[in-house]
Design a protein around this nucleic acid. Structure first.
Lengths: 155, 155
DNA sequence: AACTTTTTGACTAATATTGACTTTCATTAT
DNA sequence: ATAATGAAAGTCAATATTAGTCAAAAAGTT
């Protein structure tokens, strides 16, 4: 696919592990060395690709014996997570953030591929392209929250 | 066909690749260099010749390892019926009119019950409740049109 | 001439990479 | 115990690397 940049490659590496096990525990510096990049790049990958919007929870510890642990959460049987997502959305959300949420819902089989695609075009940048970017993000938030609330009822 | 200008030549080049593979992934600057034109000309070619009406969808990413991906999609049989609906919608539509459209698409099995319901909450009055009713109807029209365009192809 | 399409480039936006500096925690020395 | 040291991970801002937008200029058509 599009494995051009290092971040994508690291993402893929971690997700491949997470496909089998429910959780990974890494040492930041080791992974950095493995992929020949600076340690903070691992943070970048985590912050952009392993957020709660993506369906992951990350915990870490500093100091000697430190680690970063990434765990996949399930959105179906965890209704609280849906509410957390609604909180995260608040009153505005960018498309890329929204995309991550929809993708997570698809991966957890809350949405079919087609349902996810229809929602995505509905909240696409071009669709909601109005005078002000804040307006765009506000409308998107409202649509998304309406949909998430609907999903709480008939799954 | 008549390869006079650069845009036509680039179009032909890309379509030749797409005749074999289902999708192309390019680097904008590379193609620009290959055809000795400015990068933004690639955008022009894409915007004028690789639209959904022509049966293509385009996705891109900026930043390091960025790309433009063009994929050929097969338009469904009644794509022009959807085009007619899009014409009817124009640039604004009330909820009740939109409801009728969604309902008829459900009756024609273009949409499942759940898909229809999700679309309906997305374009509901309460979701799109804004200061001005005309703004509400305009946003609804754009969302609906995006969805209808998406329904023109599957996958 | 009027109109449409194409070409160009300056400016903008998004995403990724890097490194200096900070914080936290565990272990060792006093 | 407490302090000092070192070993992690975190933050943040600067820089780099792409693609997108828009409108003016140029070229082509009618």
């Amino acid at each position: 696919m599009q494995g051009q940049n290092i971040s994508d490659i690291i993402e893929e590496y971690l997700k491949r592990i997470l496909a089998d096990t429910r959780q990974v525990e890494i040492k930041r510096s080791e992974i950095a060395q493995l992929f020949n990049c600076v340690p903070s790049q691992i943070n970048y990958v985590i912050n952009t690709r392993f957020t709660i919007q993506n369906g992951y929870i990350v915990r870490s510890k500093r100091g000697g014996g430190g680690y970063i642990r990434i765990a996949k959460v399930n959105l179906i049987n965890d209704a609280d997570v849906l509410d957390d997502l609604i909180d995260v959305i608040g009153d505005n959300i960018s498309f890329s953030q929204a995309f991550q949420i929809i993708q997570s819902l698809f991966e957890d089989s809350v949405l079919t591929q087609k349902e996810a695609n229809l929602i995505l075009v509905a909240i696409d940048r071009r669709t909601l392209d109005f005078e002000d970017k804040r307006v765009e993000n506000a409308i998107r938030a409202r649509i998304l929250i309406s949909i998430l609330n609907r999903l709480k009822y008939d799954g």
